[in-house]
Simulated assay, not measured.
Amino acid sequence: MQSMKVSVFMNRRPVVFTEQLPVEAAVERLLQSRQRGGPVVDAAQRVIGFLSEQDCLAAMLRGTYHNEMSATVGDCMYHGDVLTVFADDSIADVAQRMDANKPKVYPVLDDETKQLVGVITRTDVLAAIDSFFQDSYRQR
């Protein structure tokens, strides 16, 4: 399973946000994609934060309470160090990281440029492990 790489199972066209995007537009993107959150990137496609469904929910509740919606992604995103993985990481290693940490979506970075190249979710990792076991069963 160590030979199974993130690059094979990741979503290469994830929902991505910028700090200036209105939170309402971000919510629309999340709902249409069914992605639980996504990376926030700068102009160079480097990850500078993360926006989750929970972040959006909190911003929308505040907006409802004040009867206004003027928040941007930058106002409500997570600004700290975002847990990321690399495209060449093994699925087994990512699965272990997901077991120890709570994020459901990890931005995937290019090993050399450190730019965003996709995302991988727990569902993607589970599908990868399942395909490994399915292949093992067929070989018996």
Rank of each mutant, 00 (worst) to 15 (best):
V8H: 14
M10D: 00
R13C: 02
R13F: 07
P14T: 08
V15Y: 04
V15Q: 07
F17Y: 07
F17I: 09
E19T: 15
E19N: 06
Q20W: 01
V23D: 11
V23F: 08
E24W: 14
A26D: 10
A26G: 09
V27L: 15
R29N: 12
L30H: 12
L30V: 08
L31G: 10
L31T: 15
Q32P: 03
S33K: 13
S33Y: 09
R34G: 13
Q35Y: 02
Q35T: 04
G37E: 09
G37Y: 02
G37L: 06
G38S: 06
V40E: 07
V41Y: 01
V41F: 01
A43W: 05
A43E: 01
A44H: 09
Q45A: 00
R46K: 11
R46W: 03
I48E: 04
I48R: 06
I48A: 04
G49N: 07
G49W: 01
G49F: 02
L51N: 10
L51D: 12
E53I: 02
A58Q: 02
A59I: 05
A59N: 10
A59W: 06
R62A: 15
R62Y: 08
T64G: 13
Y65G: 01
Y65T: 10
N67D: 09
N67F: 12
A71Y: 14
V73R: 12
G74S: 08
D75G: 13
C76I: 13
C76M: 02
Y78W: 06
H79V: 05
G80L: 01
D81F: 05
D81G: 08
D81P: 10
L83V: 10
L83R: 11
T84H: 03
F86G: 12
A87W: 00
A87F: 04
A87C: 00
A87Q: 05
D88M: 11
D89N: 15
A92Q: 12
A92R: 12
D93I: 02
V94G: 01
V94D: 00
A95C: 03
Q96Y: 06
M98W: 08
D99I: 12
D99G: 06
A100C: 08
A100M: 14
N101Q: 14
K104R: 15
K104P: 00
Y106N: 12
P107T: 15
V108F: 05
L109Y: 00
L109G: 07
D111H: 00
E112M: 01
